[in-house]
Design a binder for these strands. Structure first.
Lengths: 235, 235, 235, 235
DNA sequence: TATGAATGAGGCTTCATTCAT
DNA sequence: AATGAATGAAGCCTCATTCAT
């Protein structure tokens, strides 16, 4: 019995090690993508960074693309969770909460958000990982349904303009997307006070499509806060 | 004298043919990038699509990257021109004209706009074409200066919120950027009525940072028009 | 413990195989360079001759040039060793020993010696392998120092003419260099009895710069031996 | 008649221009080979340097190799001429004159001499220009015959050691060959006083194979001069 | 006649994936 | 189970030569 349980323990132990290693691979890949750029990361370099052999990577992932898609899924999950909380808050009355949560989660690590977008471009039309991409889209569809319900209610309550519900969240998505790119764009000179800038943009996002009739107190507050950032307050 | 002028003609003719071929290469490259994705386009395939030999491509461009950067420059120039017109209109009193022109020019061919963004990511850190990229940035800096002047005046006139001028155009940029991505995102179900959606987003962009104090009539009109688009009005 | 040592053994075994393959590549490259000429040898052909895949070559050498430089280093080492022995003999009293050793080692495989010279011409200005070429030059500088010391002593002893020491070994080097080329020059008709010819030249080399005052017995002997080679003696 | 002669003049004129251009091409090629290295010279660059179109080069030379071989032939001719003079002097009694002339002509422009050697390596086995290479060899054979006669006589007169005649001139050739390489070898530290060094080596060359019985006064003189070079004389 | 644009074979190198140990 | 050596397809670029103008 003892030996049996110890063998079971050993198996569990091994599984744990195995899963740990999987995370190690993902972390290594992520770190390299962010530091070196997608193009310059090879399976070899990932393995080296993870401290394992190249062959071992293929025990965990069938192809290189599966690592990429895994990073995307992990990220999407974290967004989904934050969004769900935000939607719950919004349903509870704090009308801008969903948009705010969404912006904040995407802007929390803009470099990661952007990486995921770029990964997606690479993977579209990749026949391996087609299934996982479908998973990704399923998650997003589910989020979309929640958003639709929530926004429909906000429109009914007169908080938001009466345009098709998806206009609201797609505009938000677009702005968030753009805000992320903005963090890395080399097109512009001003980039020093990006925290304030991001608050400004978040303010815009939170009020997108607000009808004039009604102003959500929480939104007003957050907008006010934005405009009272250190620099502005000195005036 | 006659023979002399005809030889000059011939030379001019040749140059024209040469430049035409250059355009052919760019067009072929562009078409392939859009249809197949940046990764899958090779110099060979560009040459094949342009109906010329592989080596000929290198008579026009020193490296593959130079083709990419050329596409970027051509595009940036077209944006710059449109923006300049918009800024002129804005200075002439139509306060939202610059933002509108900017959105419209970027959303006119969103697939191209997006391609250019992705090309830029690839080319950053490419030691060849560093000079051309600097050109690109110079154009953008120039645009930025014009925008700054214009927005400063609009702030003084009380049309726009009194935040640092670049908040306004960067927020606009971000939204435009995101709107472009939105056109191609496979994340969302609703994509049928994208023209209306884009108008909605443009409306958001045009009113970004408008102060409550003042509403530009032209902006109101355009916003109203947006919401009364054919589809919606039928309801 | 047994398994541990056997695993260590296995690793050692692998390394040996790996190094063997490296040698195989070098041998293949060398054979091809000698038979086909430097120009006509491609990485592909080397791989084919070595019986391995093209990619495998790049596991052992970062660039094609590294193969070339490796051949050079290996050769230079063998020369250095022979020369060191010769210098030791010379210091021990046999004054012509160094020159003789040098000539003999360079003329032992003249085709290889010549190849190495030609490789060097190709590699000068090759930014990769600059470090290895410096190694090569370091070896040579070290040889040069030894020669300088030795020759200085021979001059003091009155064996060699009192000219700057490097005149002696550079003249030797030049003659050896030329002798090597002579083996392959298609300029001349007589090439049948090259062994004797080389002995004659070696004799010249060994007595280069000998002062008239003194004749080293060993040198005389060797010179005599040269002229009494089988062919000549029959006359 | 007038028109006829003027047309003949025109034809002659044209021919002259044509030949001038041929020389221009050769000069351009030579200059580029010397400055940039054989590898880096393209037909394009030659044409550019010569100030003509690439296609025009092919009106003068059927292949690129023909330019190379032409440089070789021109050089060989200049050597031959100098050597012939030297041989004449030697026959007239100045026994070392031939060797001296040979050394001096080859060391007059060592960079050119070396270039020609390297060109030859490239061209061996080039099926085009095989005929011209044969011409080259014919010239050399002819030189060889002259040398043989001359040396045979010097041996008979007891000036030179009684070894096969070609031993003498081949040893000379080898030393000259090596001396040329020495000028460019990066193997050695000492290269400042190369003029003196070359005199020393020439001295060696001139006395190669001298029998002890007899010393040619001219040789002695030249050797003495060598050893009384500025540096040495200060001692 | 002079030109130079066009060609495409061929070279070097990279890297995802496989598989024997 | 872990390893990393081996593989070879595929990409970019060069340049001698041709040929239409």
């Amino acid at each position: 019995m003892n030996s049996k349980s110890s063998s079971a323990d050993r198996i569990r132990e091994k599984k744990k090690i195995f899963l740990n290693r999987e995370q190690k691979i993902i972390d290594a890949a992520l770190a390299l993508f962010l530091s070196d750029g997608i193009d310059r990361v090879t399976v070899s370099s990932i393995a080296a960074k993870a401290g394992i052999g190249k062959g071992t990577v293929y025990k965990h992932f069938l192809t290189k693309n599966e690592i990429l898609v895994r990073i995307m899924l992990d990220y999407e999950e974290s967004i989904t969770q934050r969004l769900a909380e935000g939607i719950a808050d919004a349903e509870a009355g704090e009308s801008g909460a969903a948009a705010k949560a969404y912006f904040e989660s995407r802007l929390a690590r803009p470099e990661l958000d952007r990486l995921v977008q770029h990964l997606e471009v690479r993977l579209i039309d990749a026949s391996d990982v087609a299934a996982q991409l479908e998973q990704l889209h399923a998650m997003r569809r589910s989020n979309e349904d929640s958003l639709n319900s929530m926004i429909t209610r906000l429109i009914e309550r007169g908080v938001l303009e009466d345009v098709p519900p998806h206009y609201h969240y797609l505009a938000c998505w677009a702005l968030a997307q753009g805000a992320v790119e903005l963090c890395f764009s080399r097109s512009w000179n001003y980039r020093l006070d990006s925290a304030d800038l991001m608050k400004f943009i978040t303010g815009v996002g939170v009020t997108i499509g607000n009808s004039g009739q009604y102003r959500d107190p929480s939104t007003i507050k957050s907008s006010a806060k934005t405009l009272k950032s250190p620099d502005s307050s000195k005036q």
